Amino acid sequence: MSVTAVPLRPIAKGALAKLWIGVGLAVAVAAGGAYLGTQSAAVANAGTPEQFLAWNAKQAGVVTTASGLQYKVVEEGKGAKPTDSDAVLVSYKGTLRDGKVFDENSQASFPVAGVVPGFSEGLKLMSRGAKYRLFIPPALGYGEQSPAEVIPANSVLVFDVELLDFRSMAEIQAEMQRMRESGAMPGGMPGGR
């Protein structure tokens, strides 16, 4: 049995020091990134509404309107956009910043002007089929007047909204009147006089 010796070249002078400096820099960069990530998460979940909205405004795809509403287009729709004189059919999920769900509905119908200002403003930006994420500041949401215990006062409201359809209130009222007159709706005259 023979042993073959493989000649190893000596390590260049200072190479080991450079290696350790490189390892040290990599650890420092990783620690810095982890610290910044922790700080961002802290602001997102525990900072004031103003701190959260300032942080959120810098996130990819988030747009801030003149009123302070922030939104992110998840999927763009097509066609016209609703106005204050329309009623919408939407699917939505409302959460707090920490992800706690406070309201959800897969087919809700209501007047555009009949909801908090931030939600109404967001609806008017959307076309049929659009999916948006709305970040509603307290001043455009419920402010200090929380409607339920699950929503603390001065909360930023986060809504995932899909605009399924919309129609004008005048059109809806005319159709309801026709249904009442034909007896197809309670409160109308019975048909076949």
Results as ranks from 00 to 15, higher is better:
Gln70Arg: 07
Lys18Asp: 10
Phe110His: 10
Val161Thr: 12
Tyr71Cys: 07
Ala17Trp: 08
Ala87Lys: 06
Pro186Cys: 09
Glu171Arg: 13
Ser155Leu: 05
Thr4Lys: 05
Leu134Met: 08
Glu50Thr: 14
Arg178Thr: 10
Met126Arg: 11
Gly183Ala: 07
Gly77Lys: 12
Gly122Ile: 09
Glu149Leu: 11
Gln145Asn: 14
Asn105Trp: 08
Ala54Ser: 10
Gly99Met: 04
Leu163Arg: 13
Arg9Leu: 08
Val43Lys: 08
Val3Ala: 02
Gly24Asn: 01
Ala44Val: 07
Ala153Pro: 13
Pro186Leu: 05
Glu144Gln: 05
Trp55Thr: 01
Arg128Lys: 15
Val62Gly: 06
Glu75His: 09
Asn45Gln: 13
Leu19Trp: 08
Leu19Ala: 01
Ala42Asn: 15
Lys93Asn: 07
Thr65Gly: 13
Lys78Gln: 14
Val90Thr: 14
Met179Trp: 04
Lys124Ile: 04
Leu19Asp: 00
Val112His: 02
Asn56Arg: 15
Met176Leu: 13
Met1Cys: 09
Leu140Thr: 12
Ala153Cys: 10
Val101Gly: 07
Arg193Phe: 12
Ala34Met: 09
Ile21Cys: 09
Leu134Thr: 08
Asn154Phe: 04
Asp84Ala: 15
Pro49Cys: 03
Val112Met: 05
Phe52Gly: 00
Lys18Val: 09
Gly187Thr: 13
Pro152Trp: 06
Ala153Gln: 08
Tyr142Gly: 01
Val29Tyr: 02
Gly94Met: 01
Val90Lys: 02
Gly191Gln: 12
Ala15Thr: 11
